[in-house]
Simulated assay, not measured.
Amino acid sequence: MAISPPPQNAAFIDAWLTDMDGVLVHEEDPIPGAAEFIEALKREGLRFQVLTNNSIYTPRDLRARLLGSGIDVPEDAIWTSALATARFLADQRPDGSAYVIGEAGLTTALYEAGYTMTSRDPDYVVLGETRTYSFEAITRAIRLIEGGARFIATNPDVSGPSPEGKLPATGSVAALITAATGRTPYYVGKPNPLMMRTALNRIEAHSEHTVMIGDRMDTDVISGLEVGMRTILVLTGSTRPDQVEHFPYRPTRIADSIADVVDLVRERAPGPHGAITVNDA
């Protein structure tokens, strides 16, 4: 499928948000055009953030992983559901405490936000991804929630990819805890527009002049749309072309891959006097 034609209402684009898995990489394998897309953003001096619902890794970890795939993304241009969760909790209840099921990406973000990790009367139970979900830890979480701890989850994704196939992810374990407690978590990551808004605020970008690129209609596109951004769906990830029409909303554009978006970066960037470009993104 070729990139779909643009609508006529034109406006420049000076900031970009993009999902990572399914857009820039498949696991450790780069998607053709991903490195060129990031370099085009840098060359044009545009603000950008690479977003991921995965809470396992720190931005430093993810930068190293992407660099190993030939994609050079600055550490401060990576925004994870773990970082968004830590920001949310710090705003809601500064210097609070949490019982955490997750890995370094989540615990590091919470520590840096001023949070104390504890299994004794915490303010929150915070659930994120881990490759080693523990029955003991899940049981502890259930009992703490029943005892009054507030339930937070980094994202609602029910499964994640691995070289061997699907793995259960945060949403699946959250469903288990919800079934046991009757308490539904507050999900911070996509499709919650909160994650998009915090990413925009981080680079001082306005939604009217920002594009969100993703591979999933039910997370990337809907959250971008709800924040007021234009959206590009790439067909290298979760959503197949035949599934697009099943949704009651549409992306602004559909492209085969990120390679089809590289030229748009230059074409839609502000002109030398901030002039509006010819075609919308």
Rank of each mutant, 00 (worst) to 15 (best):
K190L: 09
K190I: 14
K190E: 12
M195V: 13
M195E: 02
M195H: 05
M195T: 09
M195Q: 11
M196G: 10
M196D: 08
R197H: 14
R197E: 14
R197G: 08
T198Y: 08
T198D: 09
A199Y: 06
A199E: 01
A199C: 09
A199F: 05
L200N: 09
N201H: 08
R202H: 14
I203L: 01
I203G: 02
I203H: 00
A205V: 08
H206V: 13
S207E: 04
S207H: 05
S207R: 05
H209W: 07
H209I: 12
T210R: 01
T210C: 06
T210K: 01
T210E: 02
V211R: 00
M212N: 02
M212R: 00
M212W: 04
I213Q: 00
I213A: 01
G214A: 04
G214H: 02
R216K: 11
M217Q: 07
M217R: 07
D218I: 15
D218Q: 13
D218F: 12
T219F: 11
T219K: 10
D220H: 10
D220L: 10
D220E: 07
V221W: 01
I222L: 09
I222N: 11
I222V: 15
S223Y: 08
G224E: 09
G224W: 03
G224Y: 06
G224V: 12
L225H: 12
E226G: 05
E226L: 15
E226H: 14
G228P: 12
M229I: 04
R230F: 05
T231R: 00
T231P: 06
T231C: 04
T231E: 01
I232L: 00
I232G: 00
L233F: 04
L233T: 03
L233E: 01
L235F: 05
L235Y: 07
L235E: 06
T236E: 12
G237S: 07
S238F: 11
S238Q: 06
T239R: 02
T239F: 05
R240D: 11
R240H: 07
P241W: 09
P241N: 11
D242Y: 15
Q243L: 14
Q243S: 14
E245T: 15
H246T: 15
F247C: 14
P248N: 14
Y249K: 05
Y249H: 10
Y249M: 13
T252L: 04
T252Y: 03
R253L: 13
I254R: 00
A255K: 00
A255Y: 01
D256A: 12
S257L: 07
S257R: 07
S257Y: 09
I258S: 05
A259F: 08
A259S: 13
A259M: 07
V261P: 00
V261L: 01
D263C: 02
D263W: 07
D263E: 12
L264T: 04
L264W: 10
R266Q: 14
E267W: 03
R268P: 00
R268F: 05
A269D: 08
P270A: 11
G271D: 09
P272C: 03
P272Q: 08
H273N: 12
H273D: 10
H273C: 11
H273A: 15
G274S: 14
A275W: 09
A275Q: 15
I276G: 11
T277E: 07
V278Y: 04
V278C: 01
N279P: 01
D280S: 11
D280W: 07
A281E: 03
A281N: 02
